[in-house]
Design a protein around this nucleic acid. Structure first.
Length: 104
DNA sequence: CTCTTGACCATGT
DNA sequence: AACATGGCCAAGA
């Protein structure tokens, strides 16, 4: 089981209307945030892996979102009901999803 | 194995 | 706030 596969599996668990940070995924998969970003860049199945629900630690979107840029990522999030605090940043207080493993 | 590429994060100036 | 730097580590050529 590769690290990438673990990342993809976690991303699939993110419910609609919620987001998760790169750092969270990194901790759960035992790697670092860069690798998470790299894995998402190489997302093999964007239809089943909602990689648009991943944001950085400040809730900001990825400039290099691989499927249309951050504008497209924002459109998808808005259509799911995610609230934005700034032009590029979501409101983590409302939309941050905390996976089971991390809740402890 | 070496080298490059990265959708990050923390810190310093 | 903007910019630069170092650390972290997986995958592909």
């Amino acid at each position: 089981m590769s690290v990438f596969s673990k990342v993809y599996r976690l991303v699939q668990n993110i419910p609609k209307g919620k987001v998760v940070t790169y750092g969270q995924i990194a901790r759960l998969t035992g790697t670092n945030p860069r690798v998470v970003g790299y894995a998402l860049h190489r997302n093999p199945d964007p239809k089943n892996i909602p990689c648009h629900r991943v944001v950085d630690k400040n809730g900001r979107l990825a400039l290099n979102y691989a499927f249309g840029g951050w504008r497209e990522q924002k459109r998808k999030l808005l259509s799911e009901g995610v609230k934005f605090k700034t032009g590029m940043g979501v409101d983590l207080n409302l939309c941050l999803f905390i996976p089971r493993r991390q809740r402890g």
